[in-house]
Amino acid sequence: MLNTLLEAFSLLSRLDSQVVAIVWLSFKVALATVTLATLIGLPFGALVAVASFPGRGAVTVFLNAMMGLPSVVVGVIVYLILSRSGPFGDMGLLYSPTAMVMAQTVLVVPLIAALTRQIVEDAWRTYATEFRSMHFSLRHSVAALLYDCRYSLVVAVLAGAGRSLSEVGAVMIVGGNIEGYTRVMTTAIALETAKGDLPLSLALGMVLLTLVLLLNTGAYHLRLWAMRKYG
């Protein structure tokens, strides 16, 4: 046990190339996922909050339900779409980082959209009449609300980043945990533990935990700062 721990620290301290490659890929996949999911999820969530259209309630329930979507289910669906016989099979994307980003985006968009809807809808209640008196169109309202809620929305985006970093099922299924190509922190931990490479798993686990803690610390301080600055 102690040996495992020491070896894990050793892997980290000498920046073991395998560890670095895995962490770097995780980082890139998470960044791409969060960027895409934010570009889609923020405006979509805000639109659902502000617009009135038939089926709005159903969309809201659907988004909330999708927040808890099991990642393996998304993995299987994206797998079917990208596999040789699937509609996008010709693109040969299965078992690639692109496929992992796609699956995770499907997973993270509802999370960010649902949180955004909640945050923006609360703000909308305060501003609706005021915006109407200024003759705002839907677009102006959405833009102003997203801006007004920007610090709370950072938290929604970070929640998305957390989910992307820590999710295993989807990236395992569509990425395949191919060493040096699609192996990320979570898939490595899941598989290397089973194969007995405990030091690697432990080292990656520590990196993962540190990253998630850092994200949350950052979010916490940003909100404190914003509250002091803007009241």
Binding site: T126, E130, Y230
Partner: peptide
């Protein structure tokens, strides 16, 4: 229109 309790954006 200016309301009795105007709401201002956080900016």
């Amino acid at each position: 229109m200016v309301f009795q309790h105007p709401v201002l954006l956080r900016s």
